[in-house]
């Protein structure tokens, strides 16, 4: 596989990951919230390195209640 083709596949993979995240956030906000909490809690445990706890706080801080429902049209915001 040439370097150019490899680079193209890397770009596509990134686009797919971002797209999947956008769709999940819009369509399944409750599931995404639970996933974020599940990821953040182990990072915030005592004894974890500072950088990991900062990352955990960052993930957890974006979890807000009442985010669900609208799922796209944003008319009800």
């Amino acid at each position: 596989m040439s370097a150019s083709l490899l680079l193209q596949y890397v770009v596509i993979a990134l686009a797919v990951i971002v797209s999947a995240w956008v769709v999940a956030k819009k369509q399944f906000p409750g599931g995404v919230r639970r996933l974020r909490m599940a990821l953040a809690i182990p990072m915030l445990r005592e004894g974890r390195p500072a950088w990991l706890r900062t990352l955990g706080r960052k993930i957890a801080s974006q979890v807000r209640s009442g985010a669900g429902g609208c799922g796209g049209c944003r008319k009800c915001d």
């Binding site: 797919v16 971002v18 797209s19 999947a20 769709v23 369509q27 796209g72 049209c73 944003r74």
Partner: peptide, 20 residues
């Protein structure tokens, strides 16, 4: 803006996934 945000958000994301 609502329409364009939808186009640039969920519609674009689903289009990428469908293309794959």
């Amino acid at each position: 803006m609502i329409f364009l945000k939808r186009v640039g958000g969920i519609i674009l994301a689903l289009t990428v996934l469908l293309w794959v």
